[in-house]
Design a protein around this nucleic acid. Sequence first.
DNA 1: TTGTATGCGTTATCAC
DNA 2: GTGATAACGCATACAA
Lengths: 348, 348
Amino acid sequence: MATRNDVARLAGVSVAVVSYVLNNKSFVKEETRRRVLAAMEELGYTPNLTARSLKTRRSGQLAVLANFIGNPFEAGILLHLEEAARRQGYMINYRSYDPDREPELLAQLAGRVDGVVLLGQSLAEETRASFRKKGVPVVSVMTPGKAGALVHTVDVDWAAAYRQVLAELIRLGHRHIAYMGHGGPSDPLYPRMEAFAAAVQEAEAAAGVTLRCDWLAAGGRYEPAREHLLELPEASGFTVLVCANDLTAIGACSACRERGWAVPERLSIVSSENILMVSETHPPIATLDYPREKAAYLAMELLVRLIGASGKKEESDEVESSAAAVEEIRLASSFIPRSSLAQAPQLS
Amino acid sequence: MATRNDVARLAGVSVAVVSYVLNNKSFVKEETRRRVLAAMEELGYTPNLTARSLKTRRSGQLAVLANFIGNPFEAGILLHLEEAARRQGYMINYRSYDPDREPELLAQLAGRVDGVVLLGQSLAEETRASFRKKGVPVVSVMTPGKAGALVHTVDVDWAAAYRQVLAELIRLGHRHIAYMGHGGPSDPLYPRMEAFAAAVQEAEAAAGVTLRCDWLAAGGRYEPAREHLLELPEASGFTVLVCANDLTAIGACSACRERGWAVPERLSIVSSENILMVSETHPPIATLDYPREKAAYLAMELLVRLIGASGKKEESDEVESSAAAVEEIRLASSFIPRSSLAQAPQLS
DNA sequence: TTGTATGCGTTATCAC
DNA sequence: GTGATAACGCATACAA
């Protein structure tokens, strides 16, 4: 609980000098510096960061608003976000985000965080505007769902990724595909589904085939996916199931076991993230690989850059200037074949 | 960026009144209150929490020092810790903890967090003392490893839990057991191993049998566990492998597949946490169930209580008074049988 | 019921 | 080189 005053008194200098020493000002006499450092040591002094924040208007803290950290995919990104933030000198304020409590959000973050990372979340336009007004930049890892405000985004280039997948599926003779993903337009998995739909069109044109697609709703978690597949009529004719995320795929895999649908003999399964888990299921699940570390680092780099910029101009333009265009960083994703994906069965 | 001054001016009152309204003081005249609220609304005012913290010496923030959030087990606890914290009005400052950077820790957390949760981590005695001196309580979820300082702890009663497991193993005819866990005395898995060793003694006495135990080092992650098992001589005679955590068990399971050791026909596997993943492997892994939500809530409750208490006395006794005894909350864990555990094979 | 004044621990701008 | 001193935005004892 020693304060800068105590240090100053003990060292026999003024408070200002203590600050100078702390901030490594070069003009302090060497002997004075030593006295001050000794005093700090003796008192176990550590500067109060709250007070510093108040004065400097920089907290060195960032908020991460996550969707569901129970999903190892998100946890992995959080892990790397924290690493990246730490290297840049920031601390992470982790919160699971609940749209119903979004109004509280601003109040709880106000003057406390220098920037915000959305992790699979959408922000209401109103909230986004408030952050903007307060000069708090927002970056999203994963494209926000339909209802969300437009913010800077880092995500996989899903259209390109799914083109790879579709080429492979077509090569293996699959013509009737099911895609299982989002639980609604505001779901962070919604954009993946849209990208898949677009990729289907392109793939048909490119390969000169016609594909049939069933769209199954799930919501990105294990249990809903499993139940959805259990309730499906036996006769659904798709030969491959593409899942928007890995938890969904694992749930689907489990349902197949319960129904006695052999994977991949009767039904192939393909997923989209590559968490550790999907290589340990039976059978291991073929999947796209989401470059989580890269995404996290790029997002953090962008955010820090924006924070620096927002500090510079400070109220330069109140309008949504065209210069403040929304950045979209798209990452490549590679496809990892595993035994859950095989030749399409010959259906009678 | 509106401040309390702006609100006061606009509402035609003094700054104090704005504070009164903000803090719901009942003595403010109803009409005045309305005027103030209207002014706040109009200006989009939100109180600066940094300034408030400086004044009240309460940040409303807690640090969570995690070991490895990539492990869904820890991520799950973090999830519930955040929920619990939020309900109590606290925010979570998540950091992955690196012993090498422990000296920085204090400086980075000083005057910034009201309490600390260790998630599978050990704190050096020196650091713990500093936190104590600053009145920042520390609670650990999971017992810290051997090298760690003694802090308040919430964890499963491992001895009791493993007694259940051992009774079951003995019933199934297993007499030669391998336990795979920690990567050293400071590993958060070390106490589990110790508890297992103690439970073995008790189980032998209770059942009137003699058990042989092999102790394998792994370190709690997937890959080391897998590699360790791959390097084991073929002739290791244990019939069941008990793993200190689930990632280890999954790695072991993978290694068994590679070596062609049938689970459970040739080797049974039992684990200790029950993350989603272990029910989806092939075969599903029998495991103890770690009550993560309960542990998180109890830890948070304890921490908040300690924060309240530390606010009360404030420098009451500088000595390590006997009243400040270290609390140890022990939770029951139930055993979940799955097909990775079966009768011991008859070895020739 | 409301206003004035002080201080929380910093940083930063001046003088000296 | 160093020392006063004014903010930063808020809470609160005390006065009115």
